[in-house]
Design a protein around this nucleic acid. Sequence first.
DNA 1: ATCGTTCTGATATACGTACATCAGAAATTG
DNA 2: CAATTTCTGATGTACGTATATCAGAACGAT
Lengths: 341, 341
Amino acid sequence: MRPTVHDVARAAGVSLATVDRVINGREGVRASTVQRVEAAIRQLGFVRNQAAANLAKGRVYRLIFIIPEGANSFMRRLESEAREAGRQMAPDGIELCVVTAPAFDGQALADILNRLDPNEIGGVALVATEAPPVRQALARLHSANVPVVTLVSDAPSFQRHRYVGIDNVAAGRTAASLLGRFLRGVNGKIALVAGSMLVRDHVERRMGFDQVIRTEYPNLEALPVVEGRDDRTATRRIVEQCLDRDPDVVGLYNIGAGNLGLIEALSGRPPERRPMVVAHELSVHTQSALESGLFHAIINQDAGHEVRSAIRTLRSLTDQRTLIEGQEHIRIEIYLRDNLP
Amino acid sequence: MRPTVHDVARAAGVSLATVDRVINGREGVRASTVQRVEAAIRQLGFVRNQAAANLAKGRVYRLIFIIPEGANSFMRRLESEAREAGRQMAPDGIELCVVTAPAFDGQALADILNRLDPNEIGGVALVATEAPPVRQALARLHSANVPVVTLVSDAPSFQRHRYVGIDNVAAGRTAASLLGRFLRGVNGKIALVAGSMLVRDHVERRMGFDQVIRTEYPNLEALPVVEGRDDRTATRRIVEQCLDRDPDVVGLYNIGAGNLGLIEALSGRPPERRPMVVAHELSVHTQSALESGLFHAIINQDAGHEVRSAIRTLRSLTDQRTLIEGQEHIRIEIYLRDNLP
DNA sequence: ATCGTTCTGATATACGTACATCAGAAATTG
DNA sequence: CAATTTCTGATGTACGTATATCAGAACGAT
């Protein structure tokens, strides 16, 4: 049986109340006594039983998840995973509140953050837009000691405790390596489609992609990015234009969302005139595009994993428990037709 | 606040004791009363607070992990992850006991299983060798209602509650697709190296690999498997022989362990005479082989994830709680130099 | 109607921790 | 040395559930 506060009290020769004061950092204990208690804790290897503590406190971890609105299927996935996780975690005293915010709208996001009462909440996870009001709102939460994690996309200026998401530069490099390897011995151009180059994760992916293509695949040339605003019809149109205009396009990297439009554009072309395609985010659509050979690889980040990792991170921040680092690392997943889940 | 047993008792118009009898399936309650209580539970949406229940029961989940001995670095990784998880989970009332068994020795494994007292343990996770005594030992545990999960490799004849590991046929297919794509337009042979074709996961990977190469890459021909018994020097020797003998070898798939020997064999050859290489399991060695360009892709399963998934699965089997399926799926991870963790 | 069963209620204790109260001991001050 | 102030101990209650005991109620059978 693991040692309890009672054991600590006995070992230190003090009362339960004193042990409690020491453990919870309350004042009114002489320094020398504190030392005796701490020595006993170390010696016995006492670790607080968090479940019992939560029970006694009647604690609920009230966590807020803020996710962009709109048709972006990854964000919708993230939202539904968050709601699902909220349901699953309720018995463990986690109350998860999922909120949506207008996409790409820094002020709206900041308003939501500023309306949060630091005393009422146990943590915030958000997909952050990079804008001054957001930075300020995050700074406010930070100074009020509210645990905060950013999801999916990060910025160095954000005051947050942790970023939960993939390394987007590495993701771009990975896309380039896949296309480069798949197009071994082929000369030609690669079309790049993004949602918007105003979004940091897209910029970073682009950067990583260029690095690798330029230094390692001289047979390939990356064309300037065309923007589809993560929108189906817009993406379809620009992809069609791009492929029609330039017959040398042998590869395509879709940096953002809008995969539905991309699939439509590709299906409309004869198989021999389709490029090698790498896109992001697994969904029913991209998955069947992989299976049918329209897409050749998909780079994915696991939305469910991100949500659960964010929850664990926020919880451990309020509990001051240490995390299992390996469990919280979000992988850059590569899917071919053969290793689909 | 979530409803408690007290609320249920009040709503059903019965006492706390009766609610307890119903919830824990104890006898001594008239059928009509049981129905009233169950109705109240449904109506209030009562869910037992597992933390409080464990506290009251003083329950410890005593779990046994059985992992093969030997130099196989994936198994060592699995072992250390299990021990680490055991340390981390101890505060949550999980007592994890990690045991090693002689590799490829069905009888020894069965002996360990048969020595386990079903009343003393809360679950077993094991890397199972396929052999009759093992089957029987698993059947015994099964009939004693001990939760059991198999790790890494599965067999249809095993009586277990769940398999925690990757789909090895799909892993083989994935390896073939990678080599096929990377060797676009190249004619030649592919060397296959396995630990032993007596091990089921190796056989399955081989099967998946052949399926894809034969049907989709007529330019490539898979050579017969050579066995390196997951051993460093043996693997080195057979790889060297194989590459020297056959200059047409343009690709190599290492199905099992023994990556150190493979790396040595490859380093000893001039760069232009090295094949395209896909291997299994990420480690410091395979990782640096990827980075230096000796290996071109690695297929991995996350040992830490497998261990934690096994623990969650065993726990939920004794608690009768439902799992989050998405969290328990073990991915076939593909690593290139660019998406290393 | 009486007896013996079978249910049910009331009540208490326990798990490990948090937190509050109050009395008394020890240290510090004048 | 007395008067404070600061520290410590003893004790009780609470969280939500499990479990045990015992008395009494409702029930079935005779």
